[in-house]
Design a protein around this nucleic acid. Structure first.
Length: 731
DNA sequence: TACCTCCACGTTTTT
DNA sequence: CGTGGAGGTA
């Protein structure tokens, strides 16, 4: 009963879980039991009759988080969680749009574009408009469109201060028109369209407002403007929004997250009801002290200090390596030692700022014969062969989908080359019809026309033969009939791809069992059961919205390698934060503006708070990056951690310190300090500049009149200087 | 149409 | 250094 549900909660957690029907902001620090509070709150609301399972909405950013929430709820309550509106923003909006596709002006079987699909559609549209791809990179246009949508703006409402943005606005407009014609929506469109649906349709708005008396939001600091607006719209004046987040862990500003939403929320919803969860159940004291000290350098925080009832534990271990290879070697040695002590590999993680850093580490681990797993990279539904198969399925579900047609019209090769496709595109363009219609009605003459006709017959034959079949058999039929298998049979990488195609059939079978036959499942029950392609559409939406695992879960007990971003939300017994160098972490692209630097610091805060017991901070004096050796100084973040919490685990040859314990790394004489092309300067050398003062040369490039050096100045920071002009004198 | 070479580029990323 | 995309050639 209630008592068992609430057992073991600390006073703040208890207060949050048992709040009355009001909005509140829960400032949940790292490791403070955030997910537990969220799920217990839901269970408590249901158990005490404050809400029915169908009367609340819980929204997360990832499918994983949504799944975990559902799992925990069903462990706490004997209810069927299937009908509950628990999911990602995109998943819930998809569900809403499927249910009201008419009101949202979408075809019943609308398809969802992932970023890849979106980019190719943007490219296609830009080519159609005859836009110079040199001056207007498609990526940038895509970024522009998504940025506008995330801010809730249609092309007609976008700010266009200059010709450049006017041109991008045109692309946006044409792109949206094309999406509408093809019956496809991108990720941001799911949210924007759902928002517009609710704004315009007061009946629906009232329906959902009356229904969702309680709304719960996870990772609130990551919401963007549109998501915030969506929540506000659904909440109306009366509903209770329970927002859980941590402004110190906001690390997605670069993709539109508005950490300021937390402050707005306090004003717009919470009426000052803010509960802080500061008791940490994860880390030893020294780790938390380090994290608290570091993050205190940020301004404008909502304010929060983590504490633990555990002891201080060990000091943080700092290792300074001469090179990135030595850094990797050190990490390998330590992991071996930890394993010998009985620590499992999967309880240890090596974190880095950018993916490029994983290579050296992987190399060292591979040579040492240590099992590891790298997060990131291609995911299941993003694989080429899977995208091909899905494109066939999309064509079966919706022949107007030009993107899908273009993807597979000639895969495997069936004699419909670039010329034929171009001719189809011309016809489609001039008549304002889809490629499919163009292909049906105006096939090119001769041999090419025959090929097009064969393709049309293939798809139509598939559609007919698949009607009424269960999903898995549909997928099987498409995989078989498309010729993809034969196609990959002859490829060298083919074996894996064929295996993946088989795996797609399995995924369809599993999906079938779990979701589609449940009338309340997202994407399942809300589609018309009489619609023969309902199951297929639900599966295709699933494929787009949940791209699957990053990598097959091969290594059972493997060391975890990932970016700091990817580590958010995870915890490990031992954590290595590697590459702690100026320019890398904080990254040089972020260090120029305050906002960027503060986000880097939050990222570092996330990194530190991943560790339960042991934390290593490592950096290298020199590192191979982009094909050349770079000489970096230690990250300023090391200097922001009280020295008393740190312990150096190597004995470097100290030559000179400037600006605190880690201002300038100790430097070994050779081979790190190399002479530079006979111009009298070398990396590692101390210099004085008339304006910037004292510093150390950390990198150099070019020669003769082009020669430039990067100098880390004690006071002025990192600068690139042209040797021809800069009046440098040896220090 | 398939392969190959050259060139540009190089935070972070879920949906 | 390594990759991925584009464009050119067999």
């Amino acid at each position: 009963m209630t008592s068992s549900l609430l057992e073991g909660l600390n006073p703040q957690q208890l207060e949050a879980v048992t709040l009355p029907d009001v909005s509140a902001l829960i400032l949940a620090g790292a490791g403070s039991g955030k997910t537990r509070v969220l799920t217990t709150r839901i269970a408590w609301l249901i158990q005490t009759g404050h809400a029915s399972p169908g009367g609340l909405l819980a929204v997360t950013f990832t499918n994983k988080a949504a799944r975990e929430m559902l799992t925990r709820i069903s462990a706490m309550l004997p209810i069927n969680t299937r009908g509950m509106w628990v999911g990602t923003f995109h998943g819930l909006c998809n569900r809403m749009l499927r249910a009201h596709h008419r009101d949202a002006a979408l075809p019943q079987g609308f398809q969802i574009l992932d970023s890849q699909d979106q980019l190719s559609l943007v490219k296609r549209v830009m080519r159609g408009l005859g836009i110079d791809e040199e001056r207007y990179p498609a990526r940038q246009a895509q970024w522009f469109i998504n940025g506008a949508k995330d801010a809730g703006r249609r092309a007609s409402h976008v700010d266009t201060p200059d010709d450049f943005s006017r041109r991008l606005r045109d692309v946006y407009e044409a792109y949206d028109r094309q999406c509408q014609q093809e019956g496809v929506v991108d990720f941001a469109e799911l949210l924007l369209r759902a928002h517009e649906l609710l704004t315009r349709n007061e009946v629906l708005q009232e329906h959902y407002r009356t229904r969702f008396r309680h709304m719960l939001v996870d990772e609130f600091q990551d919401t963007n403007r549109l998501q915030y607006s969506w929540l506000k719209l659904l909440a109306g004046r009366d509903n209770a929004v329970f927002a859980v987040g941590d402004d110190d862990q906001s690390v997605y500003r670069f993709r539109g997250a508005e950490p300021g939403n937390m402050r707005h929320f306090e004003r717009d919803f919470a009426g000052g009801r803010v509960i802080r969860l500061e008791q940490n159940y994860r880390s030893h004291g020294n780790i938390l002290d380090a994290a608290n000290a570091l993050i205190s350098h940020n301004r404008g925080r909502l304010g929060k200090n983590l504490r633990t009832s555990e002891g201080s534990g060990e000091p943080l271990r700092v290792y300074e390596a001469p090179t990135d290879l030595d850094e990797a070697r050190f990490i390998v040695d330590e992991i071996r030692a930890l394993r010998a002590e009985g620590v499992r590999s999967d309880a240890m993680a090596v974190l880095y700022r950018s993916n490029a850093q994983s290579r050296v580490l992987e190399h060292a681990l591979f040579n040492a014969g240590l099992a590891y797993r790298v997060y990131g990279g291609l995911r299941f539904f993003e694989r080429q062969e899977i995208k091909h198969a899905l494109a066939y399925l999309r064509l079966v579900a919706n022949p107007e989908d030009d993107g899908a047609l273009l993807r597979v019209v000639n895969v495997p090769a069936r004699g419909i080359g670039a010329r034929s496709v171009e001719s189809l595109q011309e016809t489609a363009q001039t008549r304002g019809i889809s490629l499919w219609q163009a292909a049906c009605a105006h096939a090119p003459s001769g041999k090419a026309g025959a090929s097009v006709a064969t393709f049309i017959r293939l798809i139509e034959g598939l559609r007919a033969s698949v009607a009424g079949l269960p999903l898995a058999e549909t997928v099987q039929a498409v995989v078989d009939a498309s010729g993809l298998k034969d196609f990959y049979q002859s490829e060298k990488e083919g074996a894996d791809r064929i295996e993946n195609l088989d795996e797609l059939v399995n995924a369809a079978a599993a999906f079938n069992a779990e979701e589609v036959y449940d009338p309340n499942a997202p994407g399942g029950g809300v589609t018309d059961p009489a619609d023969p392609t309902a199951a297929l559409n639900a599966f295709l939406a699933h494929a787009a919205l949940e791209a699957g695992e990053h990598q097959a879960g091969v290594g059972e007990d493997a060391l975890q390698l990932m970016t700091v971003h990817a580590a958010k939300g995870l915890e490990f017994h031992a954590v290595f934060v590697s590459g702690l160098e100026e320019g890398l972490f904080p990254h040089e692209n972020s260090a120029t503006e305050d906002e960027g630097l503060e986000e880097e610091r939050r990222l570092m805060y996330v990194a530190l708070t991943r560790a339960r017991r042991r934390l290593y901070l490592t950096f290298a004096q020199s590192r191979m990056l982009h094909g050349q050796t770079r000489y970096n100084v230690a990250s300023r973040f090391l200097g922001e951690i009280p020295a008393a919490l740190l312990k150096r685990v190597n004995a470097p040859v100290v030559r000179g310190f400037a600006g605190g314990a880690f201002g300038i790394p100790a430097r070994v004489s050779a081979p790190a300090a190399e002479p530079m092309g006979g111009n009298g300067w070398r990396v590692g050398q101390g210099v004085t500049h008339p304006k910037f003062g004292q510093g150390v040369i950390v990198a150099a490039e070019g020669r003769g009149a082009d020669a430039r050096v990067q100098v880390n100045f004690r006071d002025a920071g990192m600068k690139w200087l042209a040797l021809e002009y800069a009046r440098l004198t040896p220090a």
